[in-house]
Structure formats: C-alpha cells, structure tokens
Measured scan of single mutants.
Amino acid sequence: MATKAVCVLKGDGPVQGIINFEQKESNGPVKVWGSIKGLTEGLHGFHVHEFGDNTAGCTSAGPHFNPLSRKHGGPKDEERHVGDLGNVTADKDGVADVSIEDSVISLSGDHCIIGRTLVVHEKADDLGKGGNEESTKTGNAGSRLACGVIGIAQ
C-alpha cells in the first residue's frame, strides 16, 4: 500500500500549488496538507474528481469521485461524495494553506484517490446545502481553477 501521495495543481491562470497526502494505516485517516497560491481571497471548493484525465484541462477530470452514488455534502457529513473535501481558505495575498484530515478518502482500496484528479474551484462549496439540484452534485463551487493528478510519492 502506498502511504504517501502528492498532487501538483496547475491551471490556465495564476492558480498553482502542491498538496501532499499521507496515510499511516490502511483504514486510518489521510492527512492532506500543502499550499495553493494565486486564488482570490475567501473560500474555494476542494474536491477529488473521478478521473485522472487532464487532456482537456480540468474539465476532463469528470464529476466528483463518488463510488457510493451519494449526494454532495461537506467533509463531516454522512451523506457526501468520497471526493468531497470541503473548502480551502485563501488569505488576502491569495494563498491557501491547506491542513485537512479526512477519514473517507484513502490511498488504497475502494476509496483510493491515487490516479484521480484534485481540483480547486472558483467559488465556495455550499456543502450540499444550497437548496438546488446543482448543490447536491457540485456544491455550486463554480469553474475549475486548477487541477492535477494525484500520484504515489516516496
């Protein structure tokens, strides 16, 4: 089992970053940390998408990683996509320092995120509470600013 993974985020604009993942036990939580720069100040949706395909930019990554066919939600919700990591918060300089621990994603097994795409979005994720159909699919997080395929790390 891989215990570490990394993702280099890039987009068409100024947004870029490096996100690290570490899972010490196969059924334990995954620590997610790193930094994203070039964002507007505020909240930005942060999700693992189904495919590791960036051939047409971030759009070819498909929908959120959702092997259990659930509705979109927040990272602490029972009803959520596996890939729903909530929001990252950018400061006035456009930098989001990421520090998350998640017990639904994994670096092995059915919820493995390796080979899938991590995406940072234009807007805040409403965590499935926006009151419309799009909220239950995407959290109304808007366009995909930057993305990268999650790969095994040393």
Rank of each mutant, 00 (worst) to 15 (best):
A2Y: 07
A2V: 07
A2L: 11
A2K: 15
T3F: 13
T3S: 11
T3W: 13
K4I: 11
K4E: 12
A5K: 00
A5M: 05
A5F: 11
V6P: 02
C7G: 08
V8M: 11
V8A: 10
L9Q: 07
G11R: 10
G11D: 08
D12H: 14
D12W: 13
D12G: 11
G13W: 05
G13M: 07
P14T: 10
Q16N: 07
Q16F: 13
Q16H: 08
G17M: 04
G17W: 04
G17H: 03
I18E: 10
I18V: 12
I18F: 10
I18K: 14
I18T: 13
I19Y: 03
I19E: 00
I19W: 00
N20A: 10
N20S: 07
F21W: 14
E22L: 10
E22Y: 07
E22F: 03
Q23V: 13
E25N: 10
E25L: 04
E25C: 06
N27W: 07
N27P: 14
P29E: 15
P29W: 04
P29Y: 06
P29K: 05
V30L: 15
V30T: 07
K31W: 08
K31G: 15
K31T: 13
K31E: 13
V32D: 02
W33F: 11
W33D: 12
W33Q: 09
G34A: 08
G34P: 02
G34T: 04
S35F: 15
S35D: 11
I36A: 11
I36C: 11
K37I: 08
G38V: 08
G38A: 11
G38Y: 10
L39E: 03
L39F: 06
L39A: 11
T40E: 14
T40P: 09
T40H: 12
E41M: 14
E41Y: 15
E41V: 12
E41D: 09
G42F: 04
G42C: 05
L43Y: 08
L43N: 07
L43D: 09
H44L: 04
F46P: 02
F46M: 11
H47K: 01
E50D: 05
E50W: 04
E50G: 05
E50N: 06
E50T: 08
F51K: 04
F51P: 00
G52E: 03
N54E: 13
N54D: 04
T55N: 03
T55R: 05
T55L: 01
T55E: 03
A56M: 10
A56Q: 10
C58A: 00
C58M: 03
C58R: 03
T59W: 04
T59L: 13
T59Y: 11
S60I: 01
S60T: 08
A61V: 04
A61D: 02
A61Q: 01
A61E: 01
G62V: 02
P63H: 06
H64K: 01
H64L: 02
F65A: 04
F65R: 01
P67W: 07
L68G: 05
L68M: 15
S69M: 08
S69I: 15
S69V: 15
R70S: 08
R70T: 10
K71C: 08
H72G: 01
G73Y: 03
G73K: 06
G73A: 08
G74L: 04
G74V: 03
P75A: 08
P75K: 04
K76D: 10
K76L: 14
D77L: 14
D77P: 05
E78M: 13
E78S: 10
E79P: 11
V82R: 05
G83K: 03
G83T: 01
G83F: 03
D84E: 02
L85V: 12
L85N: 03
L85D: 03
G86K: 01
N87V: 06
N87M: 09
V88N: 11
V88D: 00
V88P: 04
T89V: 10
A90M: 08
D91K: 06
D91S: 09
K92G: 08
K92M: 11
D93E: 11
D93I: 10
D93C: 14
D93V: 10
G94M: 11
G94S: 09
V95Q: 08
V95M: 08
V95Y: 06
V95L: 12
V95R: 10
V95G: 12
A96F: 04
A96W: 08
A96S: 05
D97Q: 15
D97N: 15
D97T: 14
V98F: 10
V98P: 05
S99N: 12
I100M: 12
I100C: 15
I100K: 15
E101I: 10
S103M: 15
V104T: 11
V104H: 04
V104N: 05
V104C: 10
V104W: 11
I105T: 05
I105R: 02
S106P: 10
S106T: 13
S106Q: 14
S106Y: 06
L107V: 13
L107A: 03
S108W: 11
G109I: 10
G109F: 14
D110A: 12
D110V: 12
D110C: 06
D110Q: 10
D110W: 12
H111I: 14
H111G: 11
H111V: 14
C112W: 08
I113P: 04
I113A: 10
I113F: 06
I113H: 00
I114R: 07
I114A: 07
R116Q: 00
R116P: 01
R116V: 00
R116E: 00
T117L: 02
T117C: 09
T117D: 08
T117E: 05
L118S: 11
L118K: 00
V119A: 03
V120K: 01
H121T: 02
H121I: 00
E122G: 13
K123F: 14
K123Y: 08
A124S: 11
D125M: 03
D125G: 00
D126N: 04
D126F: 02
D126W: 01
L127I: 06
K129E: 13
K129V: 09
G130K: 15
G130L: 06
G130P: 08
N132E: 10
N132H: 12
N132C: 07
N132V: 11
N132F: 14
E133T: 07
E134I: 12
E134K: 04
T136F: 09
T136H: 10
T136N: 12
T136G: 08
T136C: 12
K137F: 06
K137E: 08
T138I: 04
T138W: 05
T138L: 02
T138P: 00
G139V: 01
N140P: 01
G142L: 10
G142A: 10
G142Y: 05
S143L: 09
S143T: 13
R144A: 00
A146T: 05
C147D: 01
G148R: 00
V149F: 04
V149W: 02
V149S: 05
I150D: 02
I150Y: 02
G151R: 01
